[in-house]
Computed example of a mutant assay.
Amino acid sequence: MPWMIYGANGYTGELIAREAAKRGLRPILAGRNAATVEALAAELNLPSRSFGLQDESALFEGLQDVDLVLNCAGPFSQTAEPMMFACIQNKTHYLDITGEISVFELAQSLSSKARKAKIVLCPGVGFDVIPTDCVAARLKETLPDATHLTLGFDSRSGLSSGTAKTTVEAMKLGGRIRADGEIKAVGLGYKTRDINFGNGTKFAVTIPWGDVSTAFHSTGIRNVEVYIPSSAKSVRMMRAANLARPILGLGLVQGILKSQAGKVEGPNEEQRGKMPAYVWGEARNEAGQTVVARVKTANGYSLTITGSLAVASYILMEKNIPGGAYTPSKLMGSDFVERLDGSGKIQISDV
């Protein structure tokens, strides 16, 4: 069945394309930059296509005879919407590796259209948000009446240029949490607490991670926050940056910052092998009962490679998946992260 990696010439897209070829898979490599896409496809002996996402007719033509697209072209706030609508029109399954809340919410809003088209929409099939989503689902299974969910991870994966550009876009939006079922805007550096992610207790701060959207759709838990390790100095800088957010949102400033972000290079294979990630979650019910989950995984980029290919292969092999919008745990099960290379078992405790 023909399938496509769009954005195959980007840092993460290329990693996924190389691993796919290594496994004997035959994805079509695609993107806007014909020269780089064609060069990579020639090296890997894979087919290629070149098209942008702003021309609807070119986009629809580019998806002809394609059963599944794995979108690796970020920022996904710019690429997900046109690609999702084209996939619905063309009856093509849609995956991506985003961590952007707006993209997850868009997919959920299009669930009925995807259902009618009999296709799967499943953004976030990478480190954003496979491990945290699986931890959330496992905590819900352990404490079914949970009302509050807190998630977090300690990952020293570094940034690719695409991730850096997404971070620049996120700065102008501030923080996000879910409170009483609704996504709520909060300041950068909104809350701090000490967390043992699985490698010692660390000072941590809230971030607007994708689970603010996905964990609710996976578990129904109406209060969600996500944390990463930080320093007190970094938190002070984040809070100070709240005053500059109107300036950070200006097109000129965004352009300058994204130009600098485009120069960032992601970690190499040796570096990725030395940087595992630690994922943590805590669920609490109205009675005050608390359960904690932890799992150690491969480096975030390495998990994104294996996770995205696993989901793509599953959808292409399974013929009877009901159409609609999914989260990774809803599609693949709460044990999905445990089945990926470099991951351990999710450990449940009360501390």
Rank of each mutant, 00 (worst) to 15 (best):
K296T: 13
E270K: 14
T290C: 09
S302K: 05
A287F: 14
V295Y: 10
E269S: 15
A298F: 13
G288Q: 08
E282F: 09
E269W: 13
V279W: 14
V264Q: 13
L303M: 13
M275F: 07
N299E: 11
E286S: 10
E265L: 12
G281C: 06
M275G: 03
V292I: 15
P267K: 06
G266S: 01
R294A: 10
E269V: 14
A293T: 03
A277K: 04
N299F: 12
R284Y: 06
V264C: 01
N299P: 11
G281F: 11
E269Y: 13
A277H: 02
G300M: 02
G300V: 08
R272K: 15
A283W: 04
A287R: 12
E286M: 03
K296N: 02
G273W: 00
V264F: 11
T290E: 11
P276A: 03
E270I: 07
G273M: 03
A287W: 12
K263S: 09
A293W: 12
K274D: 12
R284V: 13
V292L: 08
T297D: 01
K274P: 02
V295L: 08
A277D: 03
E270Y: 10
Y278M: 01
P276D: 00
R272W: 10
A287C: 00
E265Q: 13
R284F: 09
G281Q: 05
V292T: 15
G281E: 02
A298P: 00
Y278C: 01
G288M: 11
R294W: 08
G288E: 04
A287P: 06
Q289L: 08
A293P: 08
P276E: 04
G266D: 00
L303K: 01
G273D: 05
P267F: 09
E269L: 13
M275R: 15
G288D: 04
R294Y: 07
M275W: 03
V291K: 13
Q289T: 14
N268Y: 13
A277N: 07
N285L: 09
E269P: 01
V279M: 06
E286L: 10
N268I: 04
Y301A: 05
Y301L: 05
K296I: 04
E265V: 14
G273P: 05
V264A: 06
Q271D: 12
Y301R: 10
T297S: 03
T290D: 01
T290P: 00
K296D: 04
V291T: 11
A287Q: 14
Q289G: 01
G288H: 11
T297I: 09
A298E: 05
A277E: 00
T290L: 07
S302D: 15
P267L: 10
K296G: 02
G266K: 10
N285A: 05
G266R: 11
N285D: 14
G273T: 01
N285Q: 05
K274T: 09
R272S: 04
